[in-house]
Simulated assay, not measured.
Amino acid sequence: MSSSSPPDWARLHHAYGRAKDVPGQLAALAGADPVARGAAVSALSSNVHHQGTRWPASAHVVPPLVMLADSPTTPDRPTVVHLLHAVALGDLSDEVLPFDPVRVFAAAERVSPSDEAAVLRVLFEDDAPDPDAVADVADAVALRWAADAYRAAERHAPSFVAWLQDPEPAVAARAAALLAWFPEAPALATALAGVGSGTGVVRASANLALAFLPGPPGSGELAALTESLASPDEAVRVSAAVALARRRPTALPDEALTALIHADDDEITGVVPGWDRSLRGHVALALQRLGL
């Protein structure tokens, strides 16, 4: 799949048949009419992310969504990034982080083009469809489409890294949350650690993303998380404590443990943009990690 030449949408399928309507919906996302944009988001969500299921067209939607998010003239870019997240990951919750795509998508590797064609034929072409005829491959084919969408997004991870410095906080915060699913992105740890502390929601999201990277934190990550522990922003302090509890549980600073205990006692509320689990949920996970 190439991002330089548009796909033949009429040959691709989404949840309701041929994807001929997708180009118009993508174009509407860049338009000035907020009603048309809202309708396009709803239609795309239903077409290529139908109840979490991805389709052959889904992976091809990723490059134009990235292009829209890259452009500062695109209206409501946080919504575009949110839609991109949904297309790339379906209904996966951050409760399954850290994510291992090789393991999760293993069954998709056995899917052949003929398997996919058979499923599409039963879904969209047969006058008297027989679902039992493809029952043994249907789940694997759906997983194949999910893997394709994930891999399409993975190829654009450098753009997600660049968005960490976006002047729009909601874009940067959602980019950090999205990057938690792509730990192999080049220089990711350095980029997350380098997020400024001027906007609390972005720093908090970057801290949570750092929590799910493998291994102990490097010196740059450790410095950023330690600095965050002194932030006047509660979400920044707590998210840093969560990250340190996951990545450095046997050498946890007292300030981090204090932040976690106070957050648990005070029943801290709120969700960081781009994350499914509430901040309190992250605290509970960190305390569990510590055996508390």
Rank of each mutant, 00 (worst) to 15 (best):
D166L: 13
P167R: 07
W163M: 12
G198A: 14
P158K: 10
G215H: 03
A140E: 12
Y150E: 06
V141P: 00
V238H: 01
A175V: 07
Q165D: 15
A187C: 04
V201E: 13
T190F: 10
E154W: 05
A162N: 15
E168I: 14
W163N: 04
A173T: 07
P183K: 03
W163D: 00
L178Q: 05
F212C: 07
P217N: 03
R144M: 14
L229E: 08
N207Y: 09
G218F: 03
V238K: 05
P129C: 08
A209C: 04
A223K: 15
F160I: 12
L143Y: 03
A241N: 01
R237M: 06
A211S: 01
V202M: 10
G218I: 09
D233S: 13
A235Y: 01
P131Y: 08
A142P: 08
G215R: 02
A193Q: 12
R174L: 11
E234K: 14
A157K: 10
A176K: 12
D233N: 14
E154H: 07
A173H: 02
W145S: 06
V137G: 02
A149P: 04
S159G: 05
L213M: 02
L252N: 04
A206K: 02
A241T: 05
S159I: 11
V202W: 07
A173D: 02
V141Q: 01
P186I: 05
F182N: 06
L208M: 01
